[in-house]
Amino acid sequence: MAPVIIFLAMLLAGSAVHKAVSHRRLAIAAARLVGMPSQGQLFLIIAGTLEVAAAVCLLVAPLQKTGAILGLVVWLAYAAALLAHRGQSLDCGCDLVGRERPVGWLTIARPTALAMLVAIASTLPAASIGVDAPFAAAGLLALYLAASELLAIPLPRWRKS
């Protein structure tokens, strides 16, 4: 389970870095998601701070459950915000590049699946991190990012929403 924990930590940390690097675009996306145009930067800072805290806690065995709970809160809040905008076309901020597209079930399922994964991880005992775990986690992250790019393809034949 250590590779999954490291993957989740890498994803959370990467999301926080993404928020710092692309803060102008993502503040607009956050403002649209929460429905408060003047508060986008604040919500972006809160989300990034929670993501960093969750990532660090996930990697420290005694704090792993705390990190999992923080990750769960972040991803469930994101899923709820996306669900509230289902069918609308917007840049959700979930990709490295700005892409305005309709919010469909697959977009909502991504943070929901991550929330379920971190919830499952929170119930398991903390695992020691071996030498191979970071490599396996990097592989999971590569697969996740590849799947994200596949979801960004506009109107493929295999996708209905």
Rank of each mutant, 00 (worst) to 15 (best):
S161W: 13
P156Q: 07
H85N: 13
T49Q: 02
L117A: 15
A13M: 14
L143T: 05
V4F: 08
L11W: 02
F7S: 00
G98Q: 14
R159H: 08
A121P: 06
L70G: 10
A55R: 10
M1N: 05
P102S: 08
G48S: 03
A2W: 11
A126N: 05
A109E: 05
F135G: 01
H23K: 07
A142H: 01
Q41H: 13
A126H: 01
A136T: 10
M36A: 15
A47D: 15
L44C: 02
K160G: 01
T66M: 15
H23D: 11
L96D: 13
F43M: 11
R159S: 06
A80R: 12
Q41V: 12
H18C: 04
I5W: 05
G104D: 14
L12Q: 14
H18L: 13
G87K: 05
G130R: 05
I45K: 14
T107R: 09
L70V: 07
A2S: 15
D91N: 13
Q88H: 12
F135M: 10
A79K: 08
T123V: 04
A9P: 08
L117E: 00
A53P: 03
Q64L: 02
I153D: 04
V118N: 07
A79S: 12
G48K: 06
S161Q: 07
A80Y: 07
W158A: 09
Q41E: 15
L151H: 10
L90D: 05
P62Q: 11
L106C: 00
P125G: 07
R24V: 13
G40H: 04
W75C: 04
A47L: 02
Y78Q: 12
W158T: 00
I129P: 07
G71R: 09
L83Q: 12
S89R: 13
L72D: 00
L117Y: 00
T112G: 14
I153W: 08
G93F: 05
A109Y: 08
P111V: 08
C92E: 09
A147I: 12
A30R: 07
S89T: 15
R24L: 11
Y78E: 04
